[in-house]
């Protein structure tokens, strides 16, 4: 490993931030919902950044992976709750969520990742809608009626546990996904994967000439990012809400939020998505009080302003400034 443990020091600010958030939530239960929301945005940003930030490709259909992960958990609880597996249905649900999102990312990636730039965007923009209409049209998993499984969850694990799962453990899992995404991002950055992605983001043709199998590394990033999204959907949506409707979980505005978060903080950085998530989450929370319904109207121009004025994002700028200072070791 590069310079041993020192290369992994930037995980400390990540861990500290999440610990602080958790601490605030525990001390002040009134704010738990806000904290949980912030954790969701952190996880969403970290997971989305792992592909978009590291490859420079934007997947407009990203929310499809959250959606299908939600279904993974839902299907597990809905069909297995009477098999006496207890809490096992939740674990199986997480595994199913990962498998489903892996499958979908392989199917989409097989087409989209052969394409460059604009064509990639065109191939992905319909994935969420397309998948939603497949479920509704072929009446897969109850079609448009969705799956309501709160009763099944209570049956499977008992009333008390079910309650604890959706009010507490679901959010803890979201923290887990957020942290896992950050760890994976850093591990990739410090290993060959990260350098391959850096090279292909800068100049895909030159990267190929350097011996980089660009498709392979794009697939690695795409799949990792998709599985994290699947796990996020399974915990933040399925486990927390105990129902799933296709029209909710494939809604494109979550992709919009992911883009905002990553760009606010700085694409391709480790700390950027966290900064972006906290800024966006807090702003959305207060806007919901002051100007309800206006958050996207305010943030969409912000995206344009960031792209035009400072494409590196906040953390990107900080990183450049602090490169040669002792703090620089922590900020990437």
């Amino acid at each position: 490993m590069m310079n041993g443990y020192r290369a992994y020091l930037p995980i400390l600010p990540v861990a500290a931030t999440y610990a602080l958030l958790l601490g605030i939530g525990v001390v002040s239960p009134d704010h738990w919902q806000l904290i949980a929301q912030l954790a969701f945005y952190c996880a969403l940003g970290q997971a989305f950044n792992l592909f978009m930030g590291m490859t420079g490709y934007v997947d407009f259909g990203y929310v499809a992976f959250l959606g299908i992960g939600t279904y993974g958990m839902a299907v597990s609880i809905y069909t297995l709750s009477d098999k006496g597996l207890g809490i096992g249905v939740v674990l199986i649900g997480l595994v199913l969520a990962a498998i489903f999102s892996l499958g979908l990312s392989l199917a989409v990636g097989a087409v989209a990742l052969r394409l460059r730039g604009a064509y990639f965007a065109i191939a992905t923009i319909g994935v969420n809608e397309g998948f939603r209409y497949l479920l509704e049209g072929a009446r897969i998993w109850n079609g448009a009626d969705g799956i309501i499984f709160s009763r099944h969850l209570r049956q499977g694990v008992g009333r008390q546990t079910a309650m604890a799962l959706s009010t507490w453990w679901a959010d803890i899992l979201v923290f887990g996904v957020a942290f896992l995404a950050a760890v994976l991002t850093l591990v990739y950055m410090r290993n060959k994967v990260g350098y391959a992605l850096l090279a292909l983001r800068e100049d895909e043709d030159a990267a190929k000439v350097m011996g980089i199998n660009v498709t392979r590394y794009k697939i690695i990033a795409f799949i990792t990012s998709a599985i994290l999204a699947g796990l996020l959907g399974a915990s933040a949506w399925a486990l927390k809400l105990t129902y799933v409707y296709p029209s909710d979980v494939f809604a494109i505005h979550y992709t919009v939020e992911a883009i905002i978060i990553v760009l606010l903080g700085g694409a391709g950085t480790l700390l950027g998505p966290i900064f972006g998530a906290l800024t966006y989450g807090a702003a959305k929370y207060f806007l919901a009080i002051v100007l309800p319904g206006f958050q996207l109207l305010i943030f969409a121009p912000v995206i344009i302003a960031i792209i035009v004025l400072f494409p590196d994002g906040t953390v990107g700028l900080l990183k450049k400034r602090l490169r040669d200072t002792p703090l620089g070791k922590f900020i990437i």
């Binding site: 989409v108 087409v111 989209a112 052969r114 394409l115 064509y119 065109i122 191939a123 319909g126 994935v127 809608e129 397309g130 998948f131 209409y133 497949l134 509704e136 049209g137 072929a138 009446r139 079609g143 448009a144």
Partner: peptide
């Protein structure tokens, strides 16, 4: 055609079909 197949929602299937078509065309000839 979708309307002829029992158990399918033709409206939603048509929308899915146009997405599937997009992927196939991109696969064959972008």
């Amino acid at each position: 055609l979708f309307a002829q197949i029992p158990g399918l929602e033709p409206f939603a299937m048509t929308r899915f079909f146009s997405f599937a078509m997009l992927l196939v065309i991109l696969l064959l000839r972008p």
